[in-house]
């Protein structure tokens, strides 16, 4: 016999799917998207009508093709809310920079990331939604092929020096050394030049490193792990 709780869960799910179905009637572009990408229907079953609205909004965004959205949701494992949080303008120099910019933007609470056409030391600027008028230069780095923590400071310092050479200051560095965990990254940053020197005197006032299990944020006042 099903329990009362199980029946309530079923009723909630039924309501969610019914609402989503009603929304789908109003959004033919989302229906086409889901028909072409049936593995993504689970997002709608889980998220309901709001997810249909979100997908409709994303599919209307300039430059957002169906293929790109599928790639961001599946290969890059970005969530719909992460993708919605950050509008990307301009063209990244490398394909890996687009998901990096979105992940960075989502971490910062959402906003607008604009890639520069021609940049030195930074890839673009970020305008956070929650801080009107603020525009922060941002440097992006993947680090996917680095096998030693010792290689990180060189790359970050080089970016910092180059940014400083063109007068950039108070920028943010965002890197994804996901082959290391947050404890490894935090220990290394705290006890080495990333915290002790680079963030103190360079072009970057904040360095964000995404590890395998969370984020390490290094600022002039300290190092903290965010999970």
């Amino acid at each position: 016999m099903p329990t009362i709780d199980a029946l309530k869960d079923f009723a909630d799910q039924f309501k969610r799917v019914s609402e989503a179905a009603t929304k789908l009637d109003e959004n033919a572009n989302v229906v086409t998207f889901l028909v072409n990408n049936r593995n993504l229907v689970k997002f709608v079953l889980d998220g309901g009508a709001k997810t249909v609205d979100d997908l409709a909004t994303l599919l209307r965004r300039p430059g957002m093709t169906q293929d790109l959205l599928v790639n961001l949701l599946t290969k890059e494992s970005l969530t719909i809310s992460e993708i919605r949080s950050t509008i990307v303008k301009g063209v990244p120099a490398e394909t890996h920079e687009l998901p990096e910019a979105i992940r960075f933007g989502a971490l910062e609470g959402g906003g607008e990331f604009e890639f520069f056409g021609n940049s030195q030391g930074v890839e673009g600027v970020f305008r956070p939604t929650n801080k009107q008028g603020v525009e922060t230069p941002v440097s992006l780095k993947s680090f996917h092929d680095v096998s030693s923590l010792g290689s990180l400071p060189r790359e970050i310092r080089r970016n910092s020096n180059q940014a400083q050479a063109v007068g950039i200051e108070n920028a943010i560095f965002y890197g994804e050394p996901i082959q290391f965990n947050t404890n490894q990254l935090a220990d290394f940053a705290t006890n080495g030049p990333i915290y002790q020197q680079i963030v103190q005197d360079g072009a970057f006032s904040k360095i964000i490193l995404k590890g395998s299990d969370g984020i390490v944020e290094i600022t002039r006042s300290g190092v903290r792990i965010i999970k």
Binding site: S151, R158, N161
Partner: peptide, 24 residues
């Protein structure tokens, strides 16, 4: 118009440990 850059930096200024770098 182009985006080519060239830099020349001392290893000591970029915390480069040559042996560790080559091992990586």
């Amino acid at each position: 118009s182009n985006a080519l850059t060239l830099s020349c930096e001392r290893n000591s200024e970029t915390y480069t440990n040559e042996q560790e770098y080559l091992e990586d």
